[in-house]
Computed example of a mutant assay.
Amino acid sequence: MELRFSEADEAFRAAVRDFLEHNLTDELRAAGRASTSAFSEKQWNLGWLKILHAKGWAAPDWPVEYGGTGWSISQRYIFDTECALAETPPLSPMGLRMVAPVIMAYGRPDQKAFYLPRILAGEDYWCQGYSEPGSGSDLASLRCRAVSDGDDYIIDGTKIWTTQAHFANRMFALVRTDATGRPQEGITFLLLDMDTPGITVQPIITLAGDHEVNQVFFDGVRVPKANRIGGEGEGWAVAKYLLIHERGSTFTARIRVSLQRLKTIAAETGALEDTGFRMRLAQAGVTLEGLAMTELRVMAEISKGALMAAESSMMKTLGTELMQKVNELGLEALENFAMPYSHRWTIPGANDVPAGPRQAPILIGQYLNNRAASIYGGANEIQRNILSKLALGL
């Protein structure tokens, strides 16, 4: 099957490439190329966000009334693809793609007027308060408690694996406001200021040696009820809506970049001379093309107004598992050079030289970070359960 974009879409692609060529600085490109995680450090993704905001391109997925671009679904797909191929710093999705759609769908007019412009301009930097110790995939079992006290809630408990909470000035969180009845019915969605007294952020150093995630503790934290999104006890429905947006990311372009980087390194180390390795590399490439085709099919359905909840789970599962496979092939290609590793080698501007190929630390860092990709955003085992229910009716 041969798929072609329209002449208008190809003209748009040329305009995007021209913009990237003239606005993506060498420093930002280096930061994007060195990123080993789902999104880059705050200084880099905010630096890129502000450039996009000045152009009016910060939020292609948003409706025009809130500051979106008005692009078609194919234009948004082209833009995401070209940014990935140019290796722009991955933007934090917490504000733009996660809490913003929730505020648009469930927020009051005053909440929309206050938060959305700040998210668009990068004035607020968000983190997500979902998972807890013992409540990850089974999120409905969360225990972080919010007790009503007049016009406020008082929160006690903890959240874990809170990405970039040490940078964030705001958090969106699920809290338990009712411990009776079905677990899903006692959850409420709140917006919190991270400088509120009683909030403590403690770092968790990952396998890759970086400080990306944290555990956040709440000790008598007072949050106005005016910061609630939706009604009390309606947080589960809000959370499910948000997860559709979290899982609906474009995977194939960034995987394609990683696969090309892998081929370059494999040629340098001699791994391409091995027939078995070439076969596994080819299999990954075929899987990527199949995933890209599926991505285009999903894009076509979304353009017709479909929400695509089941497909969102499918893309999350297939995309993260393929990404992990490419990472594993990267370590196989590096052979002994995959053993020495320091996180500092992935920092843009680092002046010490790693052992082996120059891009080896990026491959190793991606491998270590992406072990969690099939867990965060809803574990892939849970995604398969969702698929069996939504797509197969089981």
Rank of each mutant, 00 (worst) to 15 (best):
A14Q: 10
A15L: 03
V16G: 02
D18R: 05
L20P: 00
N23F: 01
E27M: 15
A31K: 06
R33L: 12
S35D: 15
A38G: 10
S40K: 01
G47S: 13
G47D: 10
W48K: 05
L52W: 00
K55Y: 00
Y66G: 02
T69I: 00
W71F: 10
Q75I: 00
E82I: 02
T88A: 13
L91I: 14
S92W: 03
M94F: 14
M94A: 15
G95D: 02
G95Q: 03
L96S: 11
L96D: 08
G107R: 02
A113V: 03
A113R: 12
L116K: 01
P117F: 11
P117Y: 11
P117S: 12
L120D: 07
G122Q: 06
C127A: 14
C127Y: 00
S131I: 03
G134N: 06
S135M: 13
L142I: 12
C144H: 03
R145M: 12
S148D: 06
Y153S: 06
K159E: 07
W161I: 07
Q164P: 01
F167S: 15
F167H: 15
N169V: 09
R182T: 13
T188C: 04
L190E: 03
M194S: 07
M194L: 15
T196V: 05
T200Q: 14
T206F: 01
A208T: 04
G209A: 02
N214L: 06
F217W: 09
G220P: 02
R222S: 09
R228P: 07
I229S: 03
A237C: 05
V238S: 10
L242G: 13
L243Q: 11
H245V: 01
E246L: 11
G248C: 07
T250E: 04
F251P: 02
T252R: 01
A253T: 03
V257T: 10
L259E: 02
L262H: 08
A267Q: 15
L272G: 07
L272F: 12
T275L: 15
G276N: 13
R280V: 05
L288M: 09
L288C: 09
A292N: 09
A292M: 05
M293N: 12
R297I: 08
V298T: 02
M299H: 03
S303I: 02
K304E: 15
G305W: 07
G305S: 14
M308T: 08
S313V: 04
L322C: 08
E328R: 13
N336Y: 08
N336M: 10
A338S: 14
P340E: 01
S342P: 00
S342L: 12
I347W: 07
A350L: 06
D352H: 10
V353P: 00
P354Y: 09
G356Q: 01
G356E: 02
P357H: 13
L368I: 05
N369R: 12
A373V: 07
S388E: 14
K389G: 05
L392M: 13
